[in-house]
Design a protein around this nucleic acid. Sequence first.
DNA 1: ATATTTGCTTTCAAATCGAAAGTAATATTA
DNA 2: TAATATTACTTTCGATTTGAAAGCAAATAT
Lengths: 138, 138
Amino acid sequence: MKVKNIKNNFRSDCPISSALDLFGDKWSLLIIRDLVYFGERTFKDFSGAAEKISSARLSDRLCKLEALKLLNKLNHPTNKKVFLYSLTPKGMDLFPVIAEYVKWSNRYLNEHIAEPAKQFAKNLEADREGTLNQFMKQ
Amino acid sequence: MKVKNIKNNFRSDCPISSALDLFGDKWSLLIIRDLVYFGERTFKDFSGAAEKISSARLSDRLCKLEALKLLNKLNHPTNKKVFLYSLTPKGMDLFPVIAEYVKWSNRYLNEHIAEPAKQFAKNLEADREGTLNQFMKQ
DNA sequence: ATATTTGCTTTCAAATCGAAAGTAATATTA
DNA sequence: TAATATTACTTTCGATTTGAAAGCAAATAT
C-alpha cells in the first residue's frame, strides 16, 4: 500500500484539527482502543471486533497508524504469516483522549453502552490519574 | 435539511465507537472548539475559521449537532437573519476530549502548532483541573 | 498432498465530500 | 426608496472515501 505524505497536509496549525487530520476517522481510535485493552493484536483479532471493520479498511488504517509511528508491527514468534501489532508510547499517549470519550458516553449514552465500560468510566470519574496509570505503565 | 435518526444506528455498544458514530468526523469537534473558545458564533463566524469548511458541510454539521442537543441555536437580538450558536452543557462536556487532543498534539506535533495552543497545553499539563474549570464554568 | 488459515489486495457500487454557484430573506447604502 | 450587499443557507456535480464481497499467495495444519 502507498501511504502518501500524511503530514504537511494539515488544514491549519490548530492542534485539534491537526490531530483529526491524522486519526480523526471512525476506525483509528478503535484500533488504538483494542491495543490499549489487549496489549497485542493480530489482523484477525482486529477483524473480530464488534464494529466489523472491513479488511480493506483495516489494512489501510494499520498502515497509516504504523507510518505515524503510533504502532509497532512485529513478527509472531512461531507463525511466519502472522503479525503482532502493539502501541508505541506515542500511540499509548492517545489513551487519555479515549478515556474522555468513555466518560462522555457514560454520561450521555449511558443506557446504550456495555456494562464493563460503565464500570471503567466510574473508575475514571473516581480516580482519573490512578485509572489511567493502571493501563499506561506498560 | 433532513437529519435521519442518528442514534439507533450504532456500530456497537462500545462508548468510544458510539461517540465516534455521533461526532467522529473531521468537522464536529472544530465547531465545538470554536464555541468553547468564543462562547457564541454565527454561521459566518464558523465559515471564517482557518480550516475553511464548506457551507454545505457546515450547514449539515450544525443541524446534526443541534439535533444531538450539543448546541443551541438562538435568534440574534437585533438582526433577524442571523443565528447565534452556543454550547449546551452536553456539548461543553466534550471540552475535556478536546483538551486531551491538544495535549497530545503539543507533545507530538509541537513544531507544527500555533503558539497560543502551546501555552494552553502547558497550562493543561501544569494544572488540568484548574485550566478546564476556567472554561467550563460558563 | 490437500485443505485451511492468515493477511492482505482488488473490485465496484454507494455514500460522503469539497468547491462553486444559486437563492431567498433581510439589512444597508445611495 | 430603489439598488446593493449580506447572511444563512441549498443545490449541483465531479472527486474521494467507504463497505461488502471476492480473490490471492504464502504459510500452516491435517
